[in-house]
Write a protein that binds this DNA or RNA. Structure first.
Length: 310
DNA sequence: TTTCCTGTTAGTGT
DNA sequence: AACACTAACAGGAA
């Protein structure tokens, strides 16, 4: 689920609480998850947080370098913020009003005890056994990067390297330049590609993922198997409108909780209550008398109504 | 117990 | 070029 709406929800939440703070420490529990030199970011101030595709960019300023922390959450990454714990607190006191989390929640969101290694000094606020990196700020609040499957990463990149990374992505679907003309410019090179894989291609539609692609195709009543060359101009426009509609709805509800995602305020997202095909295999189509089917397209589980999606 | 499935995306081989 | 398949990893569900 960390697709565009989920990542953007996390970005918005983090922007409210860590901009202006200085990084005072970085604890790396899983070296694989962190690429770069942590000493470069210690002492730096967070001056802004942006999102590009499914990447979160924490912009830093320090004496000499313009560095960034780039995060990709992949399937199970989380970014969880915790406000400073009162000095005398020796045990977990439950959620604090200034605490929130983003990404996937964990079932064992109790601190300190999940991982024996975490009990060593400095790790007493570890949120769970999947914590890979802990950032500490000057006010003693912390940002936890958790990732059960270890696919996600955090990289230290300067502005040029970050900009270079971003060039690998296509336009954002919510960008005003995401037009029929833009999509056709990509489509003409791959006429036999099916539309599902086309939309999932990050160099074409940055930030689209499996859930919102299936939902957008249903909204546009286009089959995920339809070939690019068979899509009419009006269908392209309808598809763009549908993508915008579905993505904005995802943002409005703070993302989709498929299994256990929570939004930026520590609560579940709400979009799962409005999904029309994703994970509704065998259930009645909302638009006709057909049933939602699950097929595999490009190696991904794909949900659609074969009756009204053509 | 075993097998299949999952939000992503490099990388390999045909 | 297009496409299929695998690996990275962990755990829930059937």
């Amino acid at each position: 689920m960390p697709e565009l709406p989920e990542v953007e929800t996390i970005r918005r939440g983090l922007s409210k609480v860590i901009v202006g703070k200085k990084i005072t420490d970085v604890d790396i529990d899983t070296p694989k998850s962190f690429q770069g030199d942590k000493s470069q970011v210690i002492g730096a101030e967070i001056i802004g947080i942006e999102r590009r595709a499914k990447l979160i960019q924490i912009k830093l300023a320090n004496n000499s370098n313009n560095l960034n922390l780039l995060f990709h959450l992949k399937l199970t990454g989380q970014l969880i913020y915790r406000g400073a714990v009162p000095l005398r607190s020796s045990s977990y006191e439950g959620p604090r009003s200034d605490s929130f989390s983003g990404g996937h929640p964990s079932h064992d969101c109790l601190p300190a005890i999940a991982n024996a290694q975490a009990l060593r000094a400095g790790h007493t606020n570890l949120l769970n056994s999947n914590t890979r990196i802990i950032f500490t700020f000057n006010d003693h609040s912390k940002l936890f990067f958790n990732d059960m499957r270890k696919f996600g990463w955090c990289k230290v990149l300067n502005n040029n390297a970050a900009a270079l990374l971003f060039t690998e992505y296509g336009l954002e679907p919510l960008d005003k330049n995401f037009t029929v003309e833009y999509l056709l410019s990509h489509a003409k090179r791959i006429p036999n590609r099916n539309i599902k894989q086309f939309l999932m291609d990050q160099t074409i539609a940055a930030g689209m993922g499996n859930i919102y692609t299936d939902e957008s195709l249903f909204e546009a009543r286009i089959s995920p198997l339809k070939k690019i060359k068979d899509i009419s101009l009006s269908e392209w426009q309808k598809l763009i409108d549908s993508m915008i509609l579905v993505l904005k709805e995802g943002l409005k509800y703070g993302g989709t909780t498929d299994s256990d995602y929570v939004n930026a305020e520590g609560k579940k997202g709400g979009m799962q209550n409005y999904l029309k095909v994703y994970h509704r295999t065998g259930q009645k189509c909302f638009s006709c008398d057909g049933k939602v089917e699950r097929i595999v397209v490009g190696g991904r589980g794909t949900h659609y109504c074969p009756v009204c999606q053509r």
